[in-house]
Design a protein around this nucleic acid. Structure first.
Length: 293
DNA sequence: AAACTCAGCAACCGCACAGTC
DNA sequence: TGACTGTGCGGTTGCTGAGTT
């Protein structure tokens, strides 16, 4: 049957809003409120779609909107809520006063998703990636001192620690029907605590210089067991074999967890400020086609 | 200095759902 | 009860500015 367009699209303007349009919309809503978005632009004298007006108001012009970068606490909350709610941005935004769903969605897609990936956490599942029966292959031997190797070993160690510390996990009082958020587990562990205490000032930015430059190597990720399902949460993340490995590490043996040192803490401490993920380029490029759509 | 790349963000689009008649 | 309408939501696109080559 098809539905009528939300408004008459003829002569409607699209694209970025001008300050004049903003002012008209603000003034109109201040005087009349926004009872009916469909007719609002006509009444206000705007050549805009009602939807466009609503979006502009909700995401930008609303007086209670909090501008500026997200605080670490807010980012943590977004991750936590995403673990519980998934991509329900509006629900997540409802827990962050002054933040819009669009803003949170952008933050997630541009920053947090990559950050979780680096830590070996699946951004959609909030579980460790390739944690069981996984092999990491790198195309350059130098990667053994690089960030990718650090990320991987740190991730595995953190996971091993957490899995061993069952009392800690149970103390988090995770609802039984809720999957544990491994990022949160790591965040709330001693490792994460050290990370949280790390000052975010400019003085720490020198940390990133050495680490980023180390990571030009590409990493191929593979699974010991072929994906059998087709669901996005499982098979879509299934890694694949690739040619030309220079070294190979099999983390399937838990004994290897014991031998690693405080690499988890090291990885977190060296995590690039300003979300610089350039060192992950190879990894992300390999993983990207596998990500659930 | 110009070209290129990329991250961040604003905005659009289509679908889903709830309310109304 | 079903058609219609308005609104909300999530995915996606495209622009812009900063950084890099």
């Amino acid at each position: 049957m098809g539905r009528a367009p939300c408004c008459d699209r003829r002569n409607l303007k699209k694209g970025p809003w001008t300050p004049d349009e903003d002012e008209i919309l603000i003034n109109f809503i201040a005087k009349n409120g926004h009872g009916n978005w469909r007719y609002l632009p006509k009444l206000a004298g705007l050549r805009r779609c009602g939807k466009s007006c609503r979006l502009r108001w909700a995401n930008y012009l609303r007086p209670d909107i909090k501008r500026g970068p997200f605080t670490p606490d807010e980012e943590q909350l977004v991750i936590q809520l995403h673990g519980m709610l998934g991509n329900r941005w509006a629900a997540i935004a409802a827990q962050l006063p002054g933040r819009t769903d669009n803003e949170i969605k952008n933050l997630w897609n541009s920053c947090l998703k990559k950050r979780l990936l680096c830590m070996g956490i699946g951004p959609s599942t909030h579980k460790p990636l390739f944690f069981q029966g996984t092999k990491i292959r790198a195309s350059s031997a130098s990667v053994t001192t690089g960030h990718v190797a650090q990320c991987e070993s740190a991730r595995l160690e953190a996971g091993a620690r957490l899995s061993k510390d069952s009392s800690f996990v149970s103390s988090l009082q995770i609802p039984q029907r809720m999957e544990p958020d491994y990022f949160l587990l790591m965040w709330n562990s001693e490792v994460g605590e050290s990370f949280r205490k790390l000052p975010r000032g400019a003085g720490n930015e020198t940390v990133t210089d050495s680490t980023i430059s180390q990571a030009s190597s590409s990493v191929k990720i593979e699974s010991n067991s072929p994906a059998t399902g087709t669901g996005p949460a499982t098979s879509a993340w299934a890694p694949r074999w690739s040619d030309g490995p220079k070294f190979e590490t099999d983390y399937s043996s838990s004994s290897e967890f014991e031998s690693s040192s405080d690499t988890a803490l090291q990885m977190l401490l060296e995590f690039p400020i300003n979300n610089d993920m350039s060192f992950l380029e190879g990894t992300i490029m390999d993983i990207a086609p596998l990500l659930p759509s």
